[in-house]
């Protein structure tokens, strides 16, 4: 995937201590068709106009968010016509498991963010370790959620049981699949990181993987109260 980012994007951490310069001042590359100016990392962060990571992946993230947004709205408006059914069925859900899953995803997002901060300081090994910790949290999510699905399966609940369970199962399973995809991406990034494939100067892959994982987290943060708590 072509990196559409500006070079100056990798210069500072979104949080935590500012990083020291890893490249020199403005650098001019003269190609046949255009002159590309690479800005110094010391340039003000106020000039950043692109998010960290690959812009193409961000467009994919927006498409995913749009789908989840439509799903959430459809759930809410269907509930409006079936309030009693939704409230009754909602009480059968395990909020303890949902809490564990939410805490696991928030923690994994934190670890991923620390992995990005580590690679921005050229610490590949630390980056790898943070990613491994994030993957562990993702695994916790999958195990707990699978336990919930098994419980529903044993109770004879499926997509055809009623409207609530149709929404609940499809929404959460759709998200479940995104967690798996996010873990595949993070695993690929972690493997490359442990081989020294990223540096402070070039770590677009880490930022892209992190952005995708945070998207998965944000979706769950809305899904959790909507499906488990709000009635």
């Amino acid at each position: 995937m072509k990196n559409l980012n500006r070079p100056e994007l990798n210069k500072s951490s979104p949080s935590g201590p500012p990083l020291e310069s890893t490249r020199g001042g403005p650098h001019i590359e003269n190609s046949r068709d255009a002159i590309h100016v690479k800005h110094s990392p010391s340039e003000s962060s106020d000039e950043r106009t692109y998010p960290p990571g690959d812009v193409a992946l961000w467009i994919f993230i927006l498409a995913e968010l749009l789908v989840f947004g439509v799903f959430f709205s459809a759930y809410a408006f269907t509930r409006a016509s079936n309030v009693e059914l939704f409230n009754t069925c909602q009480r059968t859900l395990d909020t303890n498991s949902a809490l564990i899953n939410t805490l696991a995803l928030i923690t994994s997002s934190y670890f991923v963010m620390r992995a990005v901060a580590a690679i921005r300081e050229d610490k590949s090994q630390q980056c790898f370790q943070w990613l491994l910790a994030a993957l562990l949290m993702g695994f916790v999510f999958l195990v707990v959620k699978s336990g919930e699905y098994l419980h529903h399966y044993d109770a004879g609940i499926n997509l055809r049981t009623n409207l609530f369970y149709m929404f609940y199962l499809s929404l959460t399973f759709f998200h479940f699949m995104h967690v798996i995809l996010g873990m595949v991406i993070l695993t690929a990034v972690a493997i490359k990181a442990t081989k020294g494939g990223y540096s402070a100067a070039e770590h677009t892959g880490v930022e892209s993987g992190a952005s995708y994982w945070h998207m998965v987290d944000i979706v769950w943060l809305v899904l959790f109260p909507l499906v488990y708590i709000m009635h």
């Binding site: 951490s13 979104p14 949080s15 950043r48 998010p51 997002s109 944000i218 943060l221």
Partner: peptide, 17 residues
């Protein structure tokens, strides 16, 4: 919470446009 994740974890805080 979503806003915090976007701003601080995704790094959108401070980006213009």
């Amino acid at each position: 919470k979503g806003l915090l994740i976007g701003d601080y974890y995704m790094g959108l805080r401070g980006i213009k446009g």
